[in-house]
């Protein structure tokens, strides 16, 4: 059993252990602690970066969501506007068509009235001319029964012709 005090072993153990600790402290643990500190810093930085990236992504997601909502709202608004405009256009077009039709109708009626008046005036002129002619003829000649009838027929014939020309 090694229970005897051995100065040699005691002294050399102290010297060796002291030397080992000194060498380790200078050449091993300083670099190791630096390395571990670097690693810790790197990990901390990476975690911080990851956190920032996550936050950035979250902000972008929220922005995207907000823009999507805005776009949806805009689309809905545009659609609504479109529908409203379409309804307006439809109603405007109907109204314009109605007005145009009414204008055309009114114009046609006016034209017809003018034509009718012109026909009546022409007829009136023709009748007056024929009547004048008949009166002249009656006055100039002594008319018998046959001649009288013949004159009336001729008058009617001229009246028909005059009326036909007016209608054309």
């Amino acid at each position: 059993m090694n229970l005897v005090i051995d100065q040699r072993l005691l002294a050399w153990t102290l010297i060796t252990f002291g030397g080992v600790v000194a060498i380790l402290a200078k050449y091993a643990f300083k670099p190791l602690q630096q390395l571990l500190a670097e690693r810790e810093k790197k990990i901390r930085d990476s975690l911080e970066e990851a956190r920032k990236a996550r936050e950035g992504a979250e902000v972008i997601r929220r922005e995207g969501e907000a823009r999507m909502n805005e776009a949806r709202e805009e689309a809905r608004r545009i659609l609504e506007e479109g529908r409203r405009m379409a309804a307006d256009v439809r109603s405007e077009a109907g109204r314009a068509a109605r007005e145009e039709a009414e204008a055309l109708l009114r114009k046609a009626r006016e034209e017809m009235g003018r034509e009718s008046r012109r026909s009546v005036d022409a007829l009136r002129g023709t009748v007056a001319a024929i009547s004048l002619q008949v009166a002249k003829d009656v006055i100039r000649e002594n008319l018998d029964e046959n001649r009288h009838r013949q004159l009336v027929d001729e008058y009617l014939q001229r009246l028909k012709e005059a009326h036909g020309n007016t209608q054309r």
Partner: peptide, 9 residues
């Protein structure tokens, strides 16, 4: 030393 030096450095 042989264990620790290469590991630490």
């Amino acid at each position: 030393l042989a264990i620790l030096l290469p590991v630490c450095r």
